[in-house]
């Protein structure tokens, strides 16, 4: 009830009617998985460097309709973060302007629920751009894979602490880990986690 109310309030703040579709209908069996690479972990001052997103339809990850964009940052990326995501300044020379990237991203996801691993952070990063642009925060329903994992796992070890590290979950679910971490790669792996979790009742 509260969620609906908040959503309603959020909707009212939308200042550009071209983005009504974010509140519209979507194909029932579809969700979006997305991941961002950023200059750091502080949504207030850090910026998005790349966005990777995929549609999941039923039990299929539609890699043939993938979304992957690199974003030009407003200033040079610092050395420390380059070491983590391995996106160098030169890799972003042909990146798009942040606002263009966000607009394309919103059109890709539509009103579908968004799935991610620690998705709260990624959504905050997106909100940082759309709040000034459209007056709203991302209205899509958010699904946290580590949350689903936690809930399924906790049934069997009610007293225990559950290791929610990405690679640990992948391994526990018996999923193949692919190559390096980048936004799209992580989105594919997160998508696998999501589908697998949808298909099993216990871990």
């Amino acid at each position: 009830m509260l969620k609906r109310l908040l959503n309603h309030l959020n909707h009212k703040k939308l200042n550009d009617e071209r983005y009504e579709f974010l509140f519209g209908d979507y194909p029932e069996d579809e969700v979006i998985v997305f991941d961002t690479e950023t200059t750091g972990l502080n949504p207030k001052k850090d910026e998005i460097l790349s966005i990777g997103a995929l549609k999941i339809k039923g039990n299929k990850i539609l890699t043939s309709e993938k979304f992957e964009l690199f974003v030009k940052p407003s200033c040079d990326i610092n050395e420390e973060s380059i070491k983590i995501h391995q996106i160098r300044n030169i890799d972003l020379q042909n990146g798009c302007e942040p606002l263009d990237a966000i607009v394309q991203f919103l059109h890709f996801i539509g009103a579908r629920p968004v799935v991610g691993y620690y998705i709260e952070f990624d959504v905050k990063m997106i909100n940082k751009y759309i709040k000034p642009l459209l007056g709203i925060t991302l209205p899509n329903r958010q699904i946290e894979v580590s949350g689903i994992y936690h809930d399924k796992k906790i049934k069997f070890i009610p007293e225990g602490t559950i290791d929610l590290r990405f690679d640990v979950i992948m391994k526990d679910l018996g999923l193949p880990i692919f190559g390096k971490h980048d936004a799209l790669n992580d989105a594919v792996m997160t998508a696998m986690m999501y589908i697998k979790l949808q298909n099993i009742s216990k871990i």
Partner: peptide, 10 residues
Amino acid sequence: IGAMNIAYYK
């Protein structure tokens, strides 16, 4: 590659 999807089957 552009045309492929990943699927999961029980």
